[in-house]
Amino acid sequence: MSIIFILIPLGLVLVGFAIWAFFWAVGDGQFDDLESPGWSVVSDESPDPGATPRPDSTRPS
């Protein structure tokens, strides 16, 4: 059982890292807008939108 003397502090370090990463993400504004960035994906790859028409079924209704 003495392994827990290493594993639990190790786990706490990982948690500390996770909290640090989350703080960084919040400070970076990544949680300020949860909707529009998803739409930016569709814009970047097709400079000529007429070139690749998609079937109707893929459109959001």
Binding site: D32, D33, L34, E35, S36, G38, W39, S40, V42, S43
Partner: peptide
């Protein structure tokens, strides 16, 4: 809708002199 916001942001980013345009549909 979200596409409206996207449209506005894209249009504004294409204006010369505009550095950044963030829109929030909510």
């Amino acid at each position: 809708c979200a596409a409206c916001s996207w449209l506005i942001a894209e249009r504004l980013k294409r204006l010369p002199g505009v550095d950044r345009a963030n829109t929030n549909p909510a």
